[in-house]
């Protein structure tokens, strides 16, 4: 139990230090998960495939926040804004300029990276609560900005845009939902591998040094300003790709789909999954997609209260999120192997 106790004991920091290896899953476990993700859709209904697609998409968005918060120790309530920008860029490019859907994603990613990087610049001076407020301002402004009149010829104003769902290419005999699922899965895997490697790289170590002690990091020669904005940009870029995928999957974008509620959900997903533990992002995404539905089915009138109680249960039982379960599980397996 020593590692778990250590994790609990050092809980005073906003984001506690995580050993590098503990940020990911082992190779064996990862392979099993990937195989499961590949096989399961073959045996399920279209609606469940759609939900799994959404799970991957939200998982990506939570992952992006996790890189920012768990990696570099900065906090953002503005992820919904980047998600919205990504979604709108993809939708507008597909519908107004007839760009192929797969090509719109990198464009969304790069543009969101730019927006995030630029936003990160002035936000650098702020930290903690103040940064939260600044990003929050961005999130509340975004739906209003999308409704602005002079953008209406592209964005469709309050009504939003309908996006056509792509068909499977190469004459594959596959439903649109299933093709989109595999497409999303491929993008997700690529970004996941990128993120894992990013956190293991020189830049990742710089992020974590800033998270653990900014002053010490700068004393060791880490360019704090550059890496903080870089973390913001990368996080925004990934969120943008997730937003683009989300627009294609839901087939609709409208300003009011991207309110502050979305940003709060993504934040909850990160906490439930475990801050700083990348695979947890997908557990957290499952929580924010399915638990509101479960709450609704338990009691219609009190769905908010049921959701709140379930959330409290989770944070009481595992204050460090799914990561805590994973650590305890790992130790159990380790013990079993020894005996």
């Amino acid at each position: 139990m020593s590692a778990a106790e250590e994790v609990v004991a050092e809980g005073h920091e906003a984001v506690e230090a995580v050993p590098k290896r503990a940020m990911t899953l082992g190779t064996g476990t990862s392979l099993v998960v990937v195989v499961l993700l590949l096989i399961v859709p073959l045996f399920t209904k279209n609606f469940i495939i759609f939900q799994m697609t959404m799970l991957l998409i939200y998982g990506l968005a939570v992952l992006a926040l996790n890189i920012l918060t768990g990696g570099s120790g900065q906090f953002s309530l503005g992820q919904s804004a980047f998600y919205a920008i990504g979604a709108y860029i993809s939708a507008v490019l597909m519908e107004q300029f007839n760009v192929n859907y797969a090509l719109t994603l990198p464009i969304s990613g790069v543009l969101c990276f730019g927006v995030g990087f630029l936003f990160g610049k002035p936000a650098l001076r702020l930290s903690g609560v103040y940064l939260a407020l600044a990003t929050f301002a961005l999130a509340t402004a975004m739906p209003q900005l999308l409704k602005l009149n002079f953008l209406e010829q592209w964005t469709g104003g309050v009504q939003g845009l309908v996006v056509t769902k792509p068909d499977a290419p190469f004459g594959l005999k596959m439903s649109q939902d299933m093709w989109l699922y595999y497409f999303t899965l491929a993008v997700t895997l690529a970004i996941y591998i990128f993120s894992v490697n990013l956190l293991r790289s020189r830049s990742g170590r710089a992020f974590m040094a800033i998270r653990d002690n900014e002053i010490a990091a700068s004393a060791m020669g880490v360019d704090v300003a550059l890496y903080k904005t870089l973390a913001f940009g990368i996080s925004a870029g990934i969120t943008g790709v997730a937003g683009g995928l989300g627009a294609i999957a839901v087939q609709f974008v409208a300003p009011d789909s991207y309110t502050i509620t979305l940003a709060i959900s993504l934040f909850l997903g990160m906490v439930v999954g475990g801050v700083g533990w990348l695979p947890g992002s997908f557990v957290g995404a499952a929580f924010i997609i399915f638990v509101p539905n479960i709450a609704e089915s338990i009691s219609k009138g009190l769905s908010g209260a049921v959701f709140g109680v379930l959330l409290f249960l989770v944070i009481f039982l595992v204050p460090h999120g799914a990561r805590q379960i994973a650590i305890v599980g790992q130790q159990l397996i380790g013990k079993l192997r020894k005996t």
């Binding site: 934040f267 908010g304 209260a305 709140g308 109680v309 959330l311 409290f312 944070i315």
Partner: peptide, 15 residues
């Protein structure tokens, strides 16, 4: 962790 506390506030809000 502080972020867990913030999640607690959000849960309280919903309830």
């Amino acid at each position: 962790p502080i972020l867990t506390n913030v999640a607690g506030f959000i849960a309280l809000f919903a309830i």
